[in-house]
């Protein structure tokens, strides 16, 4: 464990789901959810994972926490391969790596009180065996996410969407993790509430030195929160780089289109719009070569020949396109 190594390193991660069919069930194909994705996250860094539906971004988030088992590839946390962890080591790992889900309605057990939900990680991890101390810690956590101790006895259904998401965040930071996967944490919230939660995440990152894998389809919120952004399409990384460089000067045609599709209250600021043709292809049978070529305004015949590798274009910046 040396200081310069990244906190989390993902190497050639792949998750293909088998599809069985036929009268005698046999393998007839794969849903290629994630294919050969590599990236790393430093301590206290926020990496945005931007993608549309079917991009595999949620699957990547779950693999990184080993909530699902990848088909191949490695996830190293502080230099250790989490795929080799036994149950006890995995439980310890969860003290350092946590998750905030998109849906604050579904991710809270309807039968539990807010106090029980937030104290669950502490009990599981046996962190505050004394119940008085544990309660104090839960109150402290609720205050951290700007909820008063009045909420202790309430149940999820009595809370608004924003309040539920705060409870979800309190649960995630209860164990004092170094790393959090935030899977679309604001997309199900009302517009006027989103900024509250974004600000809260920002504060927590500063206060707790959290590293965050911020997963979202909303590249605007991502630009606001992330140090670096990785753009994924059909389970593959199209482009990765520091936030400001990537959004001001996108290299990959998909990144460019994604940025141009974002509506802004001031249309003059948006610039030229690139409207992509067609639909996102089926991940069971992705296009040959570059998976984006079927919708790419700059595609040429060669794009179908081989999968373009992620090539470095400048330090810390890489894109997978042969037409750069």
């Amino acid at each position: 464990m040396n200081g310069t190594a990244p906190l989390l390193e993902v190497r050639r991660l792949r998750k293909w789901y088998e599809i069985k069919g036929g009268v005698i069930p046999h393998l007839i194909g794969h849903v290629q959810a994630v294919t050969d994705v590599s990236f790393s996250i430093g301590r206290g860094e926020v990496l945005g994972l931007a993608g549309e539906s079917g991009s595999g971004k949620t699957t990547i988030g779950r693999c990184v926490l080993r909530l699902i088992e990848p088909t191949s590839g490695e996830v190293l946390f502080e230099g250790e391969d989490i795929g080799t962890f036994g149950p006890e080591r995995l439980r310890k790992f969860r003290r350092h790596a946590q998750v905030v889900f998109q849906d604050p309605f579904g991710s809270l057990d309807p039968r539990m009180t807010v106090g029980e939900i937030v104290s669950e990680p502490l009990e599981v991890q046996k962190l505050f065996p004394n119940s008085k101390e544990r309660r104090d810690r839960v109150v402290e956590l609720l205050e951290t996410v700007a909820l008063s101790s009045e909420f202790l006895k309430r149940r999820p259904r009595e809370l608004s969407g924003g309040q539920r998401q705060r409870v979800g965040i309190a649960r995630a930071i209860a164990v004092n993790p170094m790393f959090i996967v935030a899977d679309e944490p604001v997309s199900s919230l009302d517009v006027s509430i989103q900024a509250q939660i974004v600000n809260l995440l920002e504060d927590l990152r500063e206060k707790l030195g959290l590293a965050i894998l911020f997963i979202s389809h909303d590249i605007v919120v991502m630009e606001h929160l992330s140090n670096r952004i990785a753009v994924v399409y059909l389970g593959r990384v199209m482009e990765i780089g520091p936030t400001d460089e990537l959004t001001s000067n996108p290299k990959h045609p998909y990144t460019e289109a994604l940025l141009s599709a974002v509506p802004d209250p001031d249309p003059a600021l948006r610039g030229k719009r690139i409207v992509l043709e067609g639909d996102i292809p089926n991940p069971v049978a992705p296009p040959s070569g570059c998976v984006f070529r079927t919708r790419c305004p700059r595609a040429i015949a060669e794009c179908a020949a081989a999968i373009p590798p992620l090539r470095e274009i400048s330090p810390g910046r890489a894109a997978a396109c042969i037409r750069l």
Partner: peptide, 24 residues
């Protein structure tokens, strides 16, 4: 999702069955 959340905080099978499945 809440069972997945319980797994994510490190809850083992026995814990999850006792705390989340059974009461529900």
């Amino acid at each position: 999702l809440y069972i997945e959340a319980a797994r994510a905080v490190g809850g083992g099978s026995a814990w999850i069955i006792r705390r989340h499945v059974w009461p529900n």
